[in-house]
Design a protein around this nucleic acid. Structure first.
Lengths: 204, 204
DNA sequence: GTCTATAAATGGATAGAC
DNA sequence: GTCTATCCATTTATAGAC
């Protein structure tokens, strides 16, 4: 019968495919890869996820949980807005340079045009989960005076630049190295930090 | 006999595949696509480029020429450093939003891990062509006082942040729209521009 | 240079037995 | 839930005729 955990194999398939998603992208792994990893046959993978798009939607859910868990962690431990942003950046750097993975959301965003329609729609929601969190951090930070805004810019515009620069720097770092990532992000944030708190290093 | 132009078909293959590269990436088109486009057969494509990696290397050459041509144009028409950077950004925006293409270099950098070894090495050289030009613009601009540097930053660091933020913003714009690209880039450059020249719009 | 024909591999997917 | 067997489509690539 169907176990209350919806079977161990199903969960293992999600875990393995989430890992491969972060390493190779959604079209970068096949049912054959999953089958090999678990020591079963392709047909058995189809039993759990009839179409690859079905698996893809579950991976979107997995990604949303992964994101929310990270943001909760940064909120709980970050002392102020800049600290929360540094934690976000350090987590991204660790994930990329130590574990040789990419953020699953960035991977899905990168593969966007090649994804099944249903996943593309889901991805728009996921992107907003990330954007909303960063906007919230900037809003609070500006209000508290922990961040300063250039003339004419609002929290949402700052958040968007922060996010896309971070993603761009991470993928450019595959060419130019991890210390350049830290340097770029410090340089990006510097104009928005109060003068007394500016450091030219990547806070650990 | 082999014509002095190395045959018209060969050149057409390069043109078509360069276009497809910018739209779909290197693994996003097949020899079948090229054959269909030219009204010939797959085997005839193989006659001109035995392996796809052979075509890939020629596309790297094409990309280098495309880059250098753009940079020469910006150098010839740009009045000063900020103007050259704006021209670079406007060209990228036009290419992306009007022609629905991506910069071939960015595409290759994005596909990096999936590329044949020989292309990966060539790509490192190509990336430096771009970086060196942007570094040159920043160096000259800082020296002329057309750009101002935050404490502790040099031309190379500024150039790297500029490049990767631009690439990140372009790919994020598929989700958030083209006006956000302009806003993000204005916001990025603002702290480096002398106070009198700051505009909060994307100069046309 | 171009063609037909074919190979060899891979990826997604289904039918039906156990 | 897992298996074998099979199908269909695609992609890269080669042999050899014209």
């Amino acid at each position: 019968m169907t176990s209350p955990l919806r079977s161990n194999t199903r969960q293992q398939l999600i875990d393995v495919s989430a890992d491969l998603l972060c390493r190779r992208g959604f079209s970068g792994f096949s049912y054959q890869d999953l089958a090999n990893e678990l020591g079963i046959r392709k047909a058995s993978v189809h039993h759990h996820f009839a179409q690859k798009a079905d698996l893809g939607l579950v991976l979107c859910d997995w990604t949303e949980a992964w994101l929310r868990q990270g943001f909760e962690h940064f909120d709980r431990h970050g002392r102020n807005a800049p600290d929360k942003l540094w934690r976000y950046l350090r987590a991204a750097a660790r994930h990329t340079f130590n574990e040789h993975k990419q953020c699953p959301l960035s991977v899905l965003q990168r593969d966007l045009p090649a994804l099944p329609e249903a996943m593309q729609q889901r991805l728009a929601e996921l992107s907003n989960v990330e954007l909303d969190w960063v906007v919230g951090v900037f809003s609070a930070g500006l209000q508290q005076g922990e961040l300063i805004s250039p003339p004419g810019a609002d929290a949402r515009a700052l958040a968007r630049l922060f996010i896309c620069s971070c993603k761009g720097a991470l993928y450019y770092a595959r060419l130019s190295g991890s210390d350049h990532f830290e340097q770029s992000m410090s340089l990006l944030l510097q104009p928005w930090l109060p003068a007394h708190s500016v450091t030219d290093t990547f806070p650990q």
